[in-house]
Design a protein around this nucleic acid. Structure first.
Lengths: 240, 240
DNA sequence: GCGCAGGTGCGTACGCCGTGCGCTAGGGTG
DNA sequence: CACCCTAGCGCACGGCGTACGCACCTGCGC
């Protein structure tokens, strides 16, 4: 047994515990999870991957987060916290509601994974940011003149529309984010298959033919705005 | 080595290959997958579980289905195939569109897992049943007098609304299906927590207070119908 | 100075998962 | 009879979420 096999009780010999990062915290973990989800989608988030991005072991995360499901709930509420603040509120009811809707859609498209996650966990009972957002929107409808009971339904109608539209846009965007390709590449790659699939359906075929070459982002935008105005039209019929 | 350790080359000695089931087929697999999904939700569907329900090994399924993702696509299109057929079409545009919307919602609520799955895979490019359904609905809007380009947007608006509403209802229903409890049990169990959470938000608090004791299924139904009529109102403003 | 308590991070391990691969046996065809 | 084709299976691999218990750091009362 030679001397250097003995453990040397010296600070310099020990591996110098790495503590340069401000340690692990719930906020850090959630923020990094959101970053990973944005970059690579829901499937790519595993506790091991997330841990290694934070220079930590997978199981260390469990000191700050009870489970992966809870982590998702926290991530979803973090996104709710990102929604644009109320705004000037000077303009009329229609403009304010439209702005909220546009902000909601924009946020979903920035984090496309959230659409599928919301569909899993539901919209009710979410965290404080989600509640604050609902409260604000409900106030907006009440101020517009909807009686309280109806304001709730009117708000749900608008939110349902926005979520429905954004969900299908988001599914497309997450697929692209996951695969790493560009939107244009994927469009060009899938278009022929789509045209072949709709061959037997004259109206769908005409629709595809008419849209060939359009910028999909722009036509999604137009389509969203069209439906938004229709929903607002329909709600307005209930006001004096 | 005694005699009965020798393999006996007789039909009666062999374990009698079980072939009473008409073997494995893609249709059988998809049908059983849908059944399992309805009963226990997305998480519960694993190839091993599905295989054992069919008296088969997990990897045997791969002879008929390329991957689990493909199995989900087939399951989703199977549900599209379940949508109510066009119907008499005698009544006006509004009634027909409303019926399609109600049928869509009812189908989603019967298979609540499909909402989250649709949010993952997107609504476009799905199987033949989905395409047929879109073609029919598009025809309905064109017949109502929408010019072709706008008919597409109008249809998307309606579908987005229905999907958005049904998605959040479905999330609730799948949670209940997964857990095995009853709707009433869960409502009673979660209500106090929800009331506590909305304590600081007067409008949300008032809403909960007003709804205490209501039948949630009924008020979901009412809320859906309210929004449906508003969306149809909004679309109708574009017709002569 | 010293022991102690509480909390943080990690290594290991368990039981799942999707699925690739190569074998076997049974039925159809020459 | 020989032959091949194919459905089904057993095994194995790498990855997953996470329970558990140990090692260590920090701060406190003595």
């Amino acid at each position: 047994m030679s001397a250097d096999e003995q453990p040397i009780p010296s600070v310099w010999a020990r591996p110098r515990r790495e503590r340069e990062q401000p340690a692990l915290s719930r906020e850090h973990i959630v923020a990094e999870a959101v970053r990973l989800l944005d970059e690579e989608g829901t499937e790519a988030l595993s506790m091991r991957r997330l841990g290694s991005r934070l220079n930590a072991g997978a199981t260390s995360l469990y000191r700050h987060v009870a489970s992966k499901d809870e982590l998702f709930e926290l991530a979803v509420d973090a996104i709710y916290g990102e929604l644009p603040p109320p705004g000037p509120a000077a303009a009329g009811w229609r403009e304010s509601a439209g702005d909220v809707a546009r902000g909601l859609r924009a946020t979903i498209l920035r984090h496309p994974w959230i659409a599928a996650k919301l569909a899993e966990v539901g919209l009710a009972f979410l965290g404080p940011n989600a509640l604050r957002h609902s409260e604000h929107l409900l106030g907006l409808f009440e101020a517009a003149g909807f009686p309280p009971a109806e304001a709730d339904q009117a708000m749900s109608t608008l939110v349902a529309y926005v979520l429905g539209v954004s969900t299908s846009e988001a599914a497309w965007l997450s697929m692209i984010a996951r695969s790493g390709g560009s939107q244009r590449e994927w469009t060009e790659r899938l278009w022929p298959a789509a045209e072949r699939a709709v061959q037997d359906y004259p109206r769908l075929r005409a629709r595809y033919a008419a849209q060939r070459g359009d910028d999909p982002a722009r036509s999604n935008e137009d389509s969203f705005e069209y439906g938004l105005q229709r929903v607002l039209d329909g709600l307005q019929t209930r006001l004096p």
